[in-house]
Simulated assay, not measured.
Amino acid sequence: MTQPIRWLQDEIADRMLQKLDIVKLDVRDVLVVPDFPGMHLATFAKRFPHARIHSIAEEGSSTSQLWLAKILANWRSLFRSAHSNLISSYLSTGKFDLPDNSVDLVLSDLLLHDLADPKHFLQECWRVLREGGLIAFSYLGPDTGKELRSVGPLPFQIKNLLSPWDMHDMGDVLMAERFSDPVMDMEYLTLDYENSALLIADVQTLKLGDSASNSSNEMTDLPPKLTLEVVYGHAWAIGKHLAKAQDSVAYIDINQIGRKTR
Rank of each mutant, 00 (worst) to 15 (best):
K146Q: 09
F137W: 10
N160P: 10
T63N: 08
D14G: 04
S196P: 14
Q65K: 11
P49H: 03
K46M: 07
L25I: 06
R80I: 01
S216V: 13
K119A: 14
R178W: 11
H40I: 02
W7R: 08
P223C: 06
A13D: 04
A250I: 13
G258L: 03
D117I: 04
A201M: 10
F44S: 01
L98V: 03
T220A: 04
S62Y: 11
Q123V: 06
G60D: 13
S62P: 12
M184I: 11
T144Y: 09
E131L: 13
W67F: 05
L31V: 00
T93S: 14
T190P: 06
L222I: 05
R6C: 01
T227I: 14
T43Y: 08
Y188D: 13
Q3A: 04
D210T: 01
P224C: 00
H40L: 01
P37G: 03
V27Y: 08
S88V: 14
L66C: 07
K159M: 07
A237G: 15
L110Y: 01
D100L: 03
T43E: 10
L199H: 13
Q9E: 06
V30H: 04
P224H: 05
F36G: 03
P142V: 09
F36E: 11
L107V: 14
A243V: 07
S215L: 13
G38E: 13
T261P: 01
L140Y: 10
D172M: 05
L154T: 15
A45V: 11
L20N: 12
I12S: 01
R178V: 11
Y232W: 13
D97L: 02
Q65C: 04
A235W: 07
A57T: 14
V33Q: 00
I158N: 07
L20Y: 11
T227P: 07
G133W: 13
T190D: 10
V106M: 03
M184V: 12
H168P: 03
R47C: 05
P4A: 01
H54I: 00
D185C: 01
V230N: 02
I254L: 09
V249F: 07
V32L: 12
V151I: 09
F156Y: 12
V231L: 12
A245D: 15
E218Y: 04
P142I: 14
D117N: 08
L115E: 11
Y139W: 10
D97H: 06
P182N: 11
M167F: 06
K119V: 10
Q123R: 11
A82Y: 00
E218K: 14
R28K: 11
G145S: 03
S163L: 00
K119M: 07
L208M: 01
L17V: 10
D26G: 15
R80N: 06
S138H: 08
N85L: 00
S150D: 15
G133H: 09
A57R: 15
L78V: 13
I22A: 08
D21K: 09
A82W: 04
T190S: 07
P182I: 04
T227E: 13
R6E: 12
P118D: 14
R76K: 10
L112D: 05
D35N: 00
F79N: 02
D97G: 06
L8N: 08
R127Q: 07
Q65Y: 10
G258A: 07
R47S: 03
L110S: 05
V203A: 00
G145F: 06
L41V: 00
G145M: 05
G258N: 07
